[in-house]
Amino acid sequence: MTAPDSESLRLLVLVGELGSIGAAATELRVSQPAASKRLTSLERRLGLELVERTRQGCTLTPAGVVVTDWARQVLAHVDGLMNGVRALRAQQQSRLRVAASMTIAEYLAPGWISELRRAFPESHLELDVTNSATVVEAIRHGRADLGFVETPIAPEGVSVRHVTRDRMVLVVPPDHPWARLRRPLNPTELAATPLIVRERGSGTRETLYRALADLGADPVAPLLELHSTTAVRNSVVAGAGPSVLSILAVGTDLAERRVIEVDVDGIDLRRPLRAVWRSGLQLTGPAAALLATAMRTPR
C-alpha cells in the first residue's frame, strides 16, 4: 500500500465538511468527475470504503471519519511545512549579505548590485567593505552569504569561483623622479623604495609582496599604510609617493595624467578576482544571480 497524496486527503476532508463531492470539487477547482475518480482511487489505495454516496449527497463511513481525522493532522503538518518553506524562501530572497574587498567593492560591485536590483527589486542587500582576509573569515563563520576577494592564491575552506582578472600597476605623481625614467624599473629598486600600501590582509598588498618575494626581493617598510584603496590613490595623486594599485583604481587618473605609470621589468602583477561562499552550500536566489552577474565581467 502506497501513502496517499496530500490533495486526495484534502478532497476527503472537504467531502466530509461539505457533504458533497461536487462542492468539494468546486473548492479545489477541479471537475466533479475528476474529484470522484480521485476519491475512488483513494479508497482503493487504502482498501477502505470512506464515503457513502447517495442522491442527497455524501456522508463519511465510520472508517472515513477516522481517516479524515488523521488526514486533518497530516494536512496541518504539510501546511506548516509549506508555510515554513515559503517563509525561508522569502527571507533568502529578501536579504543578501555580501562581503567584498576594497578594490572590488569600490570599482566593480556597484555595477553588479545595480543589475541585481533590477532582477530582484524587493531584495535587501548588505555590503561589508573590507580586506580580502576579513572577507574569507566572514564567509567561513557565516557572517556573509557571498564574498569577493583579490588574493593571488585561492583561499582554503570555502567554495571558490574565478570571476575576472585584474592588473596592478606602479604609479607615481607626475613630479616624481620615476616619472622621467627612460627604462623600466627593476624589482630590486621597487622593493628598496618605501611605498604607500594597504594594510596587512589586503589582496593588493599581498599580490605585490608575493610577486616581489617570488623574485627574491624583500620590500622595505612602507612609506604609508592606509586602510582603503581610495585613500592610497588620493595620497599618490596628492604627491605623497609611489604605490602599486589596481588599474581599476587609477585608470582614469592615468588617462588624465594625474599619475604616471612606471614599468617594472620582470614582475607579474596580474591577479585573479574570485567569488567565495560557504563550502558545501549551493547558491540560490539573489546570491546566485549576483555571482552570475559578476561572472559576466570582461576578463
Rank of each mutant, 00 (worst) to 15 (best):
R205W: 09
D265I: 00
R258K: 15
G203D: 06
G203L: 05
E156H: 07
R45I: 05
S6P: 04
T61C: 06
T40C: 02
T204E: 09
T193V: 11
G285C: 08
L11V: 10
A292M: 02
P184F: 07
I260P: 00
L14R: 06
I247L: 11
S246E: 08
I153G: 03
H162N: 14
E126R: 14
S6A: 13
R299P: 13
L11F: 06
R257A: 09
D175I: 03
A221G: 07
E27C: 10
I139V: 13
V85F: 11
H141A: 04
D175F: 11
R200A: 13
K37N: 13
A211Y: 15
I196K: 00
R53H: 08
W70M: 12
A231Q: 14
Q282V: 14
S279L: 14
G22K: 12
P187F: 07
P242F: 03
E261V: 02
L273Q: 07
A213S: 13
T103M: 00
L185I: 07
A294V: 08
A76I: 00
L81R: 14
V136W: 01
A255T: 09
R140K: 15
V160T: 11
P173M: 06
G203P: 10
V262F: 06
S114I: 02
L226V: 07
E17T: 07
L125H: 11
R210G: 04
V232H: 01
I153D: 15
S114H: 14
A3Y: 10
R270G: 07
S8D: 14
E7G: 01
D214R: 13
T297R: 10
V259Y: 02
V51N: 10
R299D: 12
A24I: 04
E206Y: 09
S159G: 06
D263W: 04
A133F: 08
V259K: 00
A24Y: 01
L185V: 02
K37Y: 09
L12K: 03
V163G: 05
R45K: 15
F148I: 05
S94T: 14
L283Q: 10
A192N: 14
A179C: 07
R38D: 11
D218M: 08
E49I: 06
A119G: 00
A71G: 05
V85C: 02
E225C: 07
R38C: 10
G22L: 04
E52W: 03
D79V: 02
R271W: 01
A100F: 04
S235P: 08
A71L: 04
V67R: 05
L223R: 12
I267N: 01
L190T: 03
L283A: 09
E199S: 05
V30Q: 09
A179S: 14
G201Y: 11
P155A: 09
Q92F: 00
R200M: 10
A25K: 01
V51I: 15
T130K: 02
R72C: 09
G216R: 12
V85R: 11
N131E: 12
T230H: 10
R53A: 00
E122P: 02
T68G: 15
P4T: 08
V262G: 03
I113Y: 07
S8L: 00
L291T: 04
L245Q: 12
A87K: 13
D175E: 15
D175N: 12
R233P: 03
V232E: 02
L195V: 01
T59F: 04
D69Q: 13
G16K: 04
G201K: 04
L146W: 08
A211P: 15
R38E: 05
F120Y: 15
A192S: 15
M102A: 08
